[in-house]
Design a protein around this nucleic acid. Structure first.
Lengths: 203, 203
DNA sequence: GCATCGACTGAAACGTGTTCCTATTATGCA
DNA sequence: TGCATAATAGGAACACGTTTCAGTCGATGC
């Protein structure tokens, strides 16, 4: 019995993958404005109506693509151990890695970030998936990798992860909107992490 | 000699005010989607082309309206002293007041917040004005009102104000997008302020 | 008073997100 | 295999943000 969680036939899964791939390609090339629904449909070899059957709006489409990208990044992260001794160092390491890859793809970052920020309540399922991936990433970095059993995060850890995630998104918006440079993003995150994760207690 | 900083003739200033008033009215009634450029022009008794002469896009228009609302709120705040003994209490007091008024106008909040978050680099002057108002509000609350000379904020104070502002915007987005309730917004802010402004030192 | 110049009006037109409709194709079932 | 149903293709149509333009109005200088 196949334990696949993916719904639909193989052809449908392939259409969905093609659509998301086309979305990321167009976003990488020209940012939010270049992700035009007709262009996505064309590049994915799918009719416009079919695109709307799979994703009910441009925002749903882009936020879903963001969730998929974060999921991939998380899976890649989890294959490597985090060696740094303190939670602060580990969190900063992870954040710096992500920031570096965002800097390499500014148009893609702009497209995905603006879609996430513009999403309304109808896309809350998709935005929640994105937030869940961010928390997964941060909580893993905060957890002590030396501990044997991966314990449940404490309430304070969750709160700190939430705040760091908020700061991350806010600074990302500042970068995308031209109010801060990529270097500023890194600095802001370091400041926030420094304020929130004092190295004294490895909380 | 008039030291007016407002540019343009009286008629132009009046048109500009009518446009922003119409924007806030429509936003209060139906949120972001109800702020349609033709509707704004009609209600402000102005031609569509004139509206675009004053504000080059819907986002510019809404973010400018947000800056004006925040400016008004700040002016009102500054007429009352902040009596609470600690910076933490004063900041939470101010944030709670704002949150309460946002809760009373959910459609307006949705419209202004989404516009701010969706703004691209071409509106960075307008978004910067909004950020400046938020920082002004937070730094005033963090400052010790008992001190005689209103001293310049320290670097750490600025950093903390920045982080709190980031968290505020991020939680606002969560509320607007239906991922959190208004009560959650208050709680998140309390947690963040608690983490960032320990009552021990009145920093 | 009159000419000039910039701002405003009213309306048409365009681009892109979104919806809708019909013909065609794929899929599962008797 | 043949049929019923759903999914897809192709494309027209609509809504709203945005642009453009010809004509009108009002202030300013002569």
């Amino acid at each position: 019995m196949p334990a696949e969680s993916e719904p639909g036939t193989a052809a449908q899964q392939d259409r969905r993958r093609r659509i998301l791939d086309a979305t990321v390609e167009l976003a990488s090339e020209g940012g939010f404005d270049a992700v035009q629904m007709r262009a996505v449909a064309d590049r994915a070899s799918v009719a416009l109506g079919t695109l709307y059957r799979y994703f009910p709006s441009k925002v749903h489409l882009l936020v879903t693509a963001l969730a998929r990208e974060l999921e991939r990044a998380n899976d890649a992260f989890e294959r490597k151990p985090l060696a740094a001794p303190t939670a602060q160092d580990r969190v900063l390491h992870v954040l710096n890695r992500i920031t570096r890859s965002l800097r390499k793809e500014p148009s893609l970052t702009e497209a995905l970030t603006r879609a996430f920020m513009f999403a309304d309540a109808s896309a809350s399922a998709e935005t929640r998936a994105v937030v869940a991936q961010v928390h997964r990433m941060l909580l893993r970095a905060m957890r002590d990798p030396a501990a044997e059993a991966p314990s449940e995060p404490t309430g304070e850890q969750r709160a700190v992860a939430q705040v760091i995630g908020d700061v991350w998104l806010a600074t990302l918006v500042q970068w995308v909107t031209g109010r801060a440079t990529a270097a500023d993003v890194g600095r802001s995150l370091e400041v926030a992490v420094g304020l929130l994760l004092r190295p004294s207690a490895d909380r």
